[in-house]
Amino acid sequence: MKTDQQALVDALLGRGGAPPGLTGAERGLAAYRTNLRALSAQALAVPFARLREALGEDEFASLAWTFWRAHPPERGDLAQWGGALENFLIERAGEASGLPDLARLDWASHRAERAANAELDAPSLALLGTTPPEQLWLQLRPGVALIVQSDGPMLVWREGWAARSQALSPGEAAFMRALLGEVNLADALVKGSGAHADFDFSTWLQAALQHAWLQGVRSTPHPEHLRTKTP
């Protein structure tokens, strides 16, 4: 049996009528649901701009309200709401629709833009010339993420204050995946070059410095609180 509190929540989310005993509550609940519906579209549009543009205002608003009722926010900060949308779209629309790809890219971009600031530890780069790669770990900046789209792997990061993204070759993707998995440099190089002849570390390092992917080089595995994870 539902508690009165759960019944009220369900009513607010449009899953049922007003609980017994709330005299004249239907009109108030209808108004509150209208406000929540508008809020759901406004909140979801912040991280999912590409998806909103692809769907159009009306269809996106309908999606936002359906998603809100299925996965309501668990925190007061609505900017943290939306991580479950990718799987929600896979279940509802399927990968072939292209919508999960848009949601995946939008969410990774949103997370990158909200990631903590981190400056390049330039002196640590000297370790690349003095220490065997088996004893080195490359630390990527917060917000750097590797996502897998229907047409291939893609890297997402923040450059300045804006999120950026680019497609990766198989070798680049294998190398970045290894770094994000906290593999040492020697093993990461093996994974990047193993079955692929398209990965060159010098070229990657130049790009990593130019686009602010790299935070530093370490002679020990990353401390727990500094580890970079994929979303």
Rank of each mutant, 00 (worst) to 15 (best):
Q6G: 08
Q6M: 14
A7D: 10
D10P: 09
R15D: 11
A18F: 00
N35F: 07
N35W: 10
R37A: 01
R37N: 02
L44F: 04
V46R: 02
F48L: 03
A49S: 11
R50L: 01
R50T: 06
L51Y: 01
F60K: 01
W68Q: 13
A70E: 14
H71E: 13
G76H: 01
G82M: 05
N87Q: 13
A96R: 15
S97Q: 05
D101E: 08
D101Y: 09
A103S: 10
A103R: 00
L105E: 04
D106S: 05
W107I: 01
H110M: 01
A112R: 04
A116Q: 09
A118N: 06
A118Q: 11
A122Q: 13
L125A: 13
A126V: 12
T130K: 14
T131Q: 13
P133L: 05
L138Q: 10
R141A: 00
G143S: 05
G143V: 07
V148K: 11
S150F: 01
G152Q: 11
V156F: 00
E159T: 08
G160K: 06
R164S: 12
G181M: 03
E182M: 04
A186C: 09
D187S: 12
D187K: 13
V190L: 14
H196F: 15
F199Y: 10
S202A: 15
T203N: 11
L205H: 09
L205D: 08
L205S: 05
A208G: 10
H211N: 12
W213V: 09
S219R: 14
E224S: 14
L226T: 05
R227K: 14
T230K: 06
